[in-house]
Computed example of a mutant assay.
Amino acid sequence: MAFEPTLLIVLVFVALILVFVIKGLMIVQQSEAVVIERLGSYNKTLAPGINWVIPFIDKPRSIKVRRYQAIGGKSVAVITEELRIDRRETVLDFPGQSVVTADNVSVMVNGALYFQVIDPERAVYQTENLIQAIEILAKTSLRSEMGKMELDKLFESRQEINDKLQVVMDEAGNKWGVKVTRVEIQDIVIPAEVEDAMRKQMAAERERRALVLRASGEREAAIAQAEGAKRSSILMAEGSKEAAILLAQGQRQAIEEVLLAGNQQLEPELVIGYLLGLEYLNTLPDIAKNGERVFLPFEASSVLGAIGSIEALLKGPKV
């Protein structure tokens, strides 16, 4: 059975149409995007799902991607070209770089950058190599911000550096169609001699704080002791004062009772002389208790006067 020329042409035409249709079909995965150029100029960005482009006229524009791979124990940058743009959040873990701080200390800093492609068209056309541009900008900004700080402040200012880097990366990322979600400083490696000096400085600082605390404790103890001694002296003085007052009141009461005893009209001078003489005689045995020999002036007239007062008191009032 021979095919007619017309039927053969129709079959060939249908086959070409099928090939043309199949060739133009493009399936884009979720979280991916494809930039399409028509005759060398931007045409559209394919969304996830089934898309159709004109074969041989519409072509996807490739994007350069820079990644690091471990080759021979070293991290080596490898640049590849991909037709599909990954719109998921991506981490860029760039290797450590040397940074000189404000006090001229060279440290090695390793950072990580998290970003996400928001506008695939800008990511393709605004920069020749998106990942490389982001990495170089991050390293430059990192050196600039860390170079303004001294080494001691560097360790406590990680969050401040991260925030400043994110602001700088956002400004450039908006132009490149990229959103920088987070910037993190992973490691800060300092030279061994600097680390040893910092360790000694920390030990000296801890010793200084211990001395300050010890001195403060001793000062507080001395103040408390002085306050206690002061309070004790005050209490002793108040006790002596009250004892003297009570003694004076007792003597006064004794004099008044002697004057009024038996309704006798006694002269006050005799009663006072009697009491003084009695106190003087009671004191004499206790004078030499604290020593073997005691020298004191002996006034016979005073003793005799006291005895005379006692005698006069015992005789009673004059009639």
Rank of each mutant, 00 (worst) to 15 (best):
E128R: 12
K74G: 00
V109D: 00
I85R: 02
R87A: 00
P60K: 05
G49V: 10
A47T: 11
L113G: 02
G111Q: 06
G49A: 02
N51G: 11
E82P: 05
N104C: 00
G40S: 11
V100A: 00
V99Q: 02
L83C: 01
V105T: 09
V78N: 05
A112T: 10
L46T: 10
A47Q: 14
V78W: 04
P95A: 08
Q126Y: 03
I50L: 15
Y42H: 13
R122K: 15
A102I: 12
Q69R: 14
V124K: 05
V65Y: 11
G96R: 06
A102W: 10
E82W: 06
R66Y: 04
T80I: 07
T127E: 01
E82V: 15
D86M: 02
T127S: 05
A112H: 04
E82C: 04
K64Q: 12
V105N: 01
R66T: 12
V53N: 00
S62C: 03
S98N: 11
S98G: 02
T90N: 00
N43T: 02
L92Y: 12
E89P: 11
R61Y: 09
L39K: 13
V124H: 05
E128L: 12
V76G: 01
K64S: 14
S75M: 10
A70I: 13
K59E: 09
V100L: 14
T127V: 15
I118M: 05
I63W: 04
Y42S: 02
P95D: 07
S75A: 11
V91Q: 06
L39G: 12
K64E: 13
I118C: 00
Y42M: 05
N110S: 15
V78L: 10
R84A: 09
E81R: 12
W52H: 04
E81L: 02
D86K: 11
L113C: 08
A47M: 14
R122P: 04
T101E: 01
V78T: 10
E81V: 01
L46K: 07
S41M: 13
Q126C: 01
D119R: 06
G73K: 08
V105Q: 04
A102R: 15
R61G: 00
P55T: 07
Q69I: 11
A47K: 14
Y125T: 05
Q69L: 09
V65C: 01
G72R: 09
A47Y: 10
Y42A: 07
F115Q: 00
K74V: 05
G40C: 04
